[in-house]
């Protein structure tokens, strides 16, 4: 009798422990798990390397281009995409002008927030049953986004922002995020892609093997002739922990002698 009682107690304890473990480890149900740290380093020049000489030895470290903004154009299951958005005829000259003078006109150039979708895929994702949390490293600061996936509607009273108001849902194995309620002072691409506060962005994230793929569609009926789906970016896993971005202080503006520039992100 005593043995039976012990067995019951032990099995009860084991069941309780299993239940606690289950609660402690968030499940994602039958959804693919997007959680992880991903290799994205915006603002880094890929076409360069560091040569280090010390004590008669020489070492060269090259950057992996795919670690910069991801492998652009790769990712199985991507939507059809085009290289550039189609602006209404009356806005094409403005876009070209902003692009040509981006070292003077791009808010990101002067440490401004890139916003969605320009911030790109997240550096870290924590996926929970009813929400996903995105973390980014960005020289304008290190934004985060908490995106509900429990079917709730957009917030009615949120202020417009650079990263907008997002709600997510699962479409098969793809996380689809609808983002709206933007301010109008970000660009959605480095080539002068301005927008209005009517912009809506749809981000899609899914797994391709052990990689993460991110693709965004931008719609702004005020300035675009049609929604623009940009190239997907496939990013690999990273073992490099997130680090607080150093403060951003751009002081070269007054020294610019011409409009020469690189793209940023």
């Amino acid at each position: 009798m005593k043995q039976i009682a012990c067995a019951v107690i032990v099995s009860t304890l084991l069941a309780s422990a299993a239940a606690v473990a289950q609660q402690a480890r968030p499940t994602t149900g039958d959804r693919p798990d997007l959680s992880g740290t991903w290799a994205i380093f915006p603002g880094v020049n890929a076409s360069s390397a560091l040569r280090r000489e010390a004590a008669g030895t020489e070492e060269t470290r090259r950057l992996d281009r795919t670690g910069i903004r991801g492998a652009v154009g790769q990712g199985r299951g991507a939507l059809p995409w085009t290289a550039a958005p189609s602006y209404k005829p009356e806005f094409q000259a403005k876009v070209q002008d902003l692009d040509a003078r981006q070292s003077k006109t791009d808010p990101v150039f002067y440490c401004g927030k890139p916003g969605v979708p320009r911030v790109g895929p997240p550096r870290r994702i924590i996926q929970l049953p009813n929400e996903v949390v995105f973390f980014y490293e960005d020289m304008s600061g290190d934004p985060y986004r908490i995106i509900p996936t429990d079917g709730r509607p957009h917030r009615a009273s949120a202020n417009p922002s650079s990263y907008g108001d997002a709600v997510g849902r699962w479409d098969g194995n793809t996380l689809v995020i609808d983002v709206r309620n933007f301010v109008d002072d970000t660009w959605f691409g480095e080539k002068g892609y301005f927008h209005t506060d009517a912009m809506r962005v749809t981000e899609r994230l899914w797994r391709d093997g052990d990689n993460l793929v991110w693709q965004a569609t931008v719609d702004d009926p005020n300035v675009l002739t049609a929604p623009w789906t940009m190239a997907p970016r496939m990013v690999r896993r990273s073992t490099q922990a997130l680090e607080e971005s150093p403060p951003c202080r751009e002081t070269d503006g007054p020294l610019l002698r011409n409009d020469d520039h690189h793209d940023q992100r």
Partner: peptide
Amino acid sequence: ASAQPVAGHHSISA
């Protein structure tokens, strides 16, 4: 897209 240099800034020559 692949040809785009990805630096964080104006060109050195600016």
